[in-house]
């Protein structure tokens, strides 16, 4: 596997938010982390990014143990993260948002920006507008485009479809599939579980901080018990 998170256990002081969690992702694969509110999905993301103190467990990227790296170093290695809220620079223009995404890269930024405009045509014509003035769906596209600017090998998305209409949700999922085709590993936390599983290669279901179920998207979708408990019938 290209990316492994092994036996992650951690939390805030005595309270363990995640216990013994395992996640694997390969390049060109979409993996969803699902589960009820408070199950520790976002904390698992934070742990992978080095923003949550781990008591035990390892994070391995392409064979390198990065468990002791700080967040900034992990980002430089090619892990990009789109937070659920405040995921754009609202007071910067769309183009500036993209430029900030490529802050650490020394490649030709202009080419990369053009590539993003091809991927997200809707934001191209708004490139001189402040990102805060865009609609919810467009903001989300800016957020994802920003994260893609530094050529990540793994893209992590925290509830990319939270608070958007079903139409926009479909649009965002379509974008995510297109990103996957660029041979990027995608790890996402989702509320819209059944929709997310439809586009996912695999999924993990987290309950009270532990991996309870895992399997391919179809397996999880077809499992009667999981359907009843987590996917609403």
């Amino acid at each position: 596997m290209y990316f492994n998170a092994k036996n992650l256990t951690g939390g805030y002081g005595e309270v363990k938010v995640i216990e013994d969690c395992n996640f694997n992702v390969n390049r060109g694969e979409i993996v969803s982390i699902l589960g009820p509110n408070g199950a520790g999905k976002s904390s698992a993301m934070k742990a992978i990014l080095g923003m949550l103190k781990l008591d035990s467990g390892k994070v391995i990227l392409d064979g390198t143990d990065i468990s002791n790296f700080n967040t900034q170093d992990r980002i430089k290695l090619g892990i990009s993260f789109v937070p659920q809220v405040n995921n754009i620079f609202s007071e910067l223009t769309v183009k500036e948002n993209l430029e900030m995404g490529a802050f650490t890269s020394s490649d030709n930024i202009e080419d990369k920006i053009e590539e993003m405009y091809d991927l997200f045509p809707a934001i191209k014509e708004k490139n001189q507008q402040f990102a805060g003035e865009l609609s919810g769906g467009q903001r989300q596209q800016v957020a994802i485009a920003r994260a893609l600017m530094n050529n990540p090998s793994i893209l992590m998305l925290d509830e990319p479809t939270a608070g958007v209409s079903p139409v926009v949700m479909q649009e965002i999922f379509e974008h995510i599939i297109r990103i996957k085709e660029k041979n990027i590993a995608i790890l996402m936390v989702e509320q819209n579980a059944s929709q997310a599983l439809k586009i996912s290669d695999r999924g993990y279901i987290l309950v009270t901080g532990q991996n309870t179920y895992q399997g391919t998207g179809d397996d999880l979708l077809n499992d009667q018990e999981i359907r009843k408990t987590f996917l609403g019938g």
């Binding site: 990014l49 967040t71 900034q72 980002i75 430089k76 990009s80 993260f81 937070p83 405040n86 995921n87 754009i88 620079f89 609202s90 007071e91 910067l92 500036e96 430029e99 900030m100 995404g101 802050f103 650490t104 920003r146 530094n150």
Partner: peptide, 23 residues
């Protein structure tokens, strides 16, 4: 300038600036 923009970015959204690799 890139540095100036990163200053505005940091002022606007500190967490995201850190996630973008701004020091």
């Amino acid at each position: 300038t890139k540095t100036g923009k990163s200053m505005r970015a940091y002022s606007n959204n500190e967490d995201l600036a850190l996630l973008s690799g701004i020091d």
